[in-house]
Amino acid sequence: MCFSLMTGCSHRPVAVVGSKCYATAMPTVGEGGLAWGDSQRSARTTALDNCERYASRSGGTPSTCRVVEARCK
């Protein structure tokens, strides 16, 4: 797992400097997704896309992904 913006860990979603909104999406089974964006709508859309991708990779149920939290600073 990568925690540094300096190391260039492009395989992990990284908060864009200045992004004010985030969203988390979870499937019934498998890994979910987190995303940051300039608006709640963009964060929700990206979180759902990430959830579907990660749920598929983890043997979960991508069709059941739902946004469970979305907030702006």
Score class of each variant (00 low, 15 high):
C21D: 10
G60T: 03
G18P: 00
S63H: 09
R66S: 13
S42E: 10
G37F: 04
A15D: 01
T46L: 12
C51N: 05
S56N: 07
C21L: 10
T24V: 09
A23K: 06
D49P: 01
R66D: 10
Q40L: 12
T24D: 01
S39W: 14
A25Y: 04
G37H: 02
R41I: 05
A47D: 10
N50D: 02
S19T: 05
E31H: 11
P27R: 07
G30H: 12
L48G: 13
R12D: 04
R12N: 12
G18E: 01
A47G: 14
W36C: 01
S63P: 03
P13E: 06
E52I: 08
Y22R: 13
C21P: 07
V17H: 05
V14N: 04
S39C: 07
P62K: 12
G59Q: 07
K20Q: 13
T45A: 15
L34T: 14
E52L: 06
S56A: 09
A15P: 00
G33P: 12
L34I: 14
S39A: 12
G59C: 04
Q40T: 14
T24E: 07
T64P: 05
R44A: 10
E52K: 14
H11M: 14
A35I: 00
R53D: 14
G18T: 01
T28H: 11
G30R: 09
P13A: 03
S10A: 08
T24K: 06
S39H: 12
W36F: 11
R12Q: 13
A55W: 14
T45C: 03
R41G: 04
T46K: 10
C51S: 05
A35Y: 01
Y22P: 01
G37P: 05
V17G: 07
T64V: 09
R66H: 09
A23T: 06
L48P: 07
T64F: 06
A23I: 04
G18I: 02
E31Y: 13
A43D: 08
A25F: 08
A47P: 06
G30D: 08
S58F: 00
K20T: 15
T28Q: 11
A55K: 10
L48H: 07
V16Q: 15
A23Q: 07
T45R: 13
S58T: 08
T24Y: 03
T61D: 10
G32S: 13
S56K: 14
N50C: 02
V14D: 02
S10N: 06
T46S: 11
R57K: 11
C65E: 01
T46W: 00
G32P: 13
S58V: 00
S63E: 13
C51F: 07
L48C: 11
W36S: 05
L34F: 10
C21E: 11
G59T: 06
Q40A: 15
E31I: 15
A25D: 08
C51Y: 04
A15N: 03
Y22H: 15
A23W: 08
A25W: 04
V29G: 00
G37I: 03
R44T: 13
L48Y: 10
S58Q: 00
D38N: 06
R44E: 15
R57W: 09
T46G: 00
R12I: 12
R41M: 02
D38I: 02
M26N: 13
A55E: 11
G30F: 04
N50P: 00
S19M: 01
G33T: 02
A35R: 00
D49A: 11
D49Y: 06
Y54R: 15
V14L: 05
